[in-house]
Nucleic acid binder design. Sequence first.
DNA 1: TCGACATATCAGCTCCTGATGATATATATC
DNA 2: GATATATATCATCAGGAGCTGATATGTCGA
Lengths: 119, 119
Amino acid sequence: MSSATELLAAPTAKVLAVAQQAKLFRGLADPSRLAILEALRLGALSVSEIVAATGLSQPNASNHLRCLSECGLVAGEPRGRFVYYRLTDPRIGELLALVGELLEGTARNVDSCENYRAD
Amino acid sequence: MSSATELLAAPTAKVLAVAQQAKLFRGLADPSRLAILEALRLGALSVSEIVAATGLSQPNASNHLRCLSECGLVAGEPRGRFVYYRLTDPRIGELLALVGELLEGTARNVDSCENYRAD
DNA sequence: TCGACATATCAGCTCCTGATGATATATATC
DNA sequence: GATATATATCATCAGGAGCTGATATGTCGA
């Protein structure tokens, strides 16, 4: 954890908020999960449909869906043998759109960033 | 990297966009970097001022600032022995605000997310 | 009940991430 | 030139993240 002095004291609401924000961003900080969220922007999909739309392996997609569910970004609804996932909030689409706009204006050099290499 | 079939072919603009978005989110996916960005919302600060505002160690703050610079989220301006950092785009503040709103509505359980533990 | 299909979970592996302490480099002042 | 301060870089470490292949579990239809 950060060595921020605030964290040495009892965690303030602000510190907790930052930690939660970091977690949410971490949920988004993976190409596979972003691909899943993009696929879900058009409507609910089953796991198999998500696998087909993203090219992910089935266990990999399932793992990422669990992660996204636990972060509250998606929710699964079992219907027989299928589980249909959907975005929990339309603002998630807004968030992705805003980041797209930011990338056009500022983070042109993200691709050259050595810390986060897209292998 | 993701085994997405699109990536096996020549990367499309879409795939590259997702990879860039993931990188930008990864830049934001750390409490220390978020604390830095929050501090900079009020105006440009030197490295020492950022250290004071966040409680981070100097090398740690410097590393994170380099990361944020390379992602295009902040820019440093040397003035004598000081380097003043600022946000490169006001929409970064909007992004943080939107995530704050999302957290109020959906990701209430982020704190319980086992994949991303704030140690 | 059995077989097929859909989904979730697991073990193991590799690579990445974020921190620290030490230190190098740059700038300003005397 | 020497010293102090500010900042950047490095080596090292511990822990986390993301993937695969195997497999367990649940549902549906015959």
